[in-house]
Amino acid sequence: MILAVASGKGGTGKTMVSDSLASVWQHPVLAVDLDVEEPNLGLFLRPEPVRDEAACLEVPVLDPARCNLCGACAQLCQFKAISLMGAQLLVFPDMCHGCGGCMRVCPQGAIQKGQRVLGRVETGLTASGIRCLTGRLRIGEAMSPPLIAKVRQHLRAMADEAALDVIIDAPPGVSCQAMMAVQDVNVILLVTEPTPFGLHDLRLAWQAFRSLGKPMTVVINRAGLGDEGVQSFCREMGLQVLMEIPFRREIAEHYARGGVLAEFDEEMRDLFTGLARKIAAMAGAGGHHA
């Protein structure tokens, strides 16, 4: 079973819901932070590091001795990673998306494989046995999707190896990064807040993810704030609101100290245990990793 915790709007409580669900999950679980530009799930789950490795993208390296300036590579590249300027072939590895096309079209074998470090892939284990996996984008790196793809490869390997359920803390928004995080999951949980901003971005997320045909459900954070717009939208679209987290100062303080909300008090633990059960039921009879 793979669950993605997503939202249109940032700062609605994805990480808070993800870490709480992981902490009450009945089956052995892997908690994955796919928000590689600013991963923060580890701040709450506090895993002991297990592995930490570099993730790289294959980029072109020019062998000028072989290059005859035919320009086939520059013509093929859609990202201006290679440019033929007069009698010089220029390579900009930062621009490369790693398609490998230049290496294939070069008739001289003048383009060798090099590597650009995208970031790190880190795994860990918490004291209570939650396995953790995250990507961490290198500072200065502009492209997060290739790193997210690498983390997803690790995700599949780790989940298959130990028959783990998976909870993904997805990046905010509805761009490539978020779409990558919610594909191949069994359930998408949208965390929102009952404000016009929350509603606007919830609608965007619902529209973007709807095309995937996955079961979607909603958790409303900061309930009691704002207006009824989110509730009406969910009713209208047939989105079930599985849980509401009240807008309370003590909850914010607990979170700001790095606390897991499900460990705030017994009421919260029960709420999240109930939420976990409902999600597992939505994911299907077995509720286990497919």
Partner: peptide
Amino acid sequence: VLAQGAGIQAAENIA
């Protein structure tokens, strides 16, 4: 029209 590499393309145009 390029999503990225506009400066490099513009340099080609200048060349």
